[in-house]
Design a protein around this nucleic acid. Structure first.
Lengths: 196, 196
DNA sequence: ATTAAATGAATGAACATTCATTTATATTTG
DNA sequence: CAAATATAAATGAATGTTCATTCATTTAAT
């Protein structure tokens, strides 16, 4: 018998990821995907049950990779400033080194399949909850509702990453590059805002 | 002869807006839209050249309303703190009072038709540029690259609005409501970060 | 020889758009 | 004032295309 061709499956995954990252869900057509991966449409159905299954698998895979990257070298016992700094750098590195994954996640963020994956994840809420409780107990951060804290602590980072991935900043004032210096600048402002 | 039924056109616009707001571009099918508005598919083509034209008109209309709301009562000569505060309140009020418009804009933000509209707009860059130049000249704000400033100044607000519209906060810790007190809290943090 | 991978062509549903007709109304005519 | 006419709105049924998915058949590896 013939063996399962893992390189072929990976190629299908990559092309599908690319199509969704660039054009959203409506950009993923099974026949176009088959053409892009150089296989017959029917071949895709050997590796994936159907279109929804393919999308769900991509959500799980990319979501998991992103969460793991976010908490690389992170410990919820860390002091607030160090923990936040590590997370900023992890998140930033992941999005910049994996722009396709980042744009894919951006596209699927509010979709049922991604929310199904994220709702089940235990790592994210546990580590984050623990980290925040510690920081609050040590009085390293102003007491705030969780959502206010999150908005001030991370939304600026993601906005900068979006500028970087779009390749252009505000208006038509030329290209934008998110370098170490701009990241440090923004992080310093956010820490100034959040520390007592 | 028969007269153009403006209520009918408005109904088509509203249903189309709703479909895109809730399900993105792929949620807008002309035949479903016809059914939702209680007209024949052909009727839509009396009021709009084609699907793209309908989408472009919605982008223009909603984009213009949003920009006007943002700068209501705003003057670029204002002091930094007052100007930023007014913009926060305007943006927040608009998104909360027009959730359908807000979710529509969220969906189309990075689409070619919306970018075509926004690229042509003169109001937004002129007022914002003027305001920032004044604030910088008066040393009311730390000198920063435009994108770093924007990210710290507005991204937290939009994240809070997203929590509010989603109706739920982080994780599964119950519903979230963006009230005056949380808005003021976040604004105070942002001002603390940006002022020298 | 066996078995699962791989296929191209087919299926039926949904899609945007068009068209020959019908309907309603503003205007003109008797 | 009422009937006739003109005109654009409104339509349901079609058009041709693209979509996800299936299937009978072929291919390749064990």
């Amino acid at each position: 018998m013939r063996i399962r061709d893992e390189a072929k499956e990976k190629l299908i995954r990559e092309k599908a990821l690319e199509m969704i990252a660039k054009q959203g869900f409506e950009g993923l057509s099974m026949q176009k995907l088959a053409k892009a991966a150089g296989v017959s449409p029917a071949t895709i159905y050997i590796y994936f049950k159907d279109r929804d299954d393919l999308i769900l698998q991509l959500c799980k895979e990319e979501g998991t990779k992103m969460i793991e990257a976010t908490f690389d070298g992170f410990d919820p016992e860390m002091h607030f400033e160090e923990g936040l700094s590590i997370q900023w750098k992890n998140r930033c590195r992941y999005w910049i080194e994996n722009p396709m994954s980042g744009q894919f996640l951006e596209q699927v963020k509010h979709s049922p399949p991604y929310e199904a994956f994220f709702g089940q994840d235990k790592v994210f809420p546990r580590l984050m909850g623990h980290f925040m409780a510690n920081a609050a107990a040590r009085k390293e951060v102003i007491p705030l509702p969780a959502e206010v804290y999150w908005s001030v602590a991370f939304a600026p980072l993601y906005q900068l990453i979006k500028f970087h991935l779009a390749g252009k900043g505000l208006g038509n004032r030329g290209p934008f590059l998110l370098d170490e210096s701009k990241l440090e600048m923004a992080l310093a402002l956010v820490l100034k805002a959040l520390k007592p």
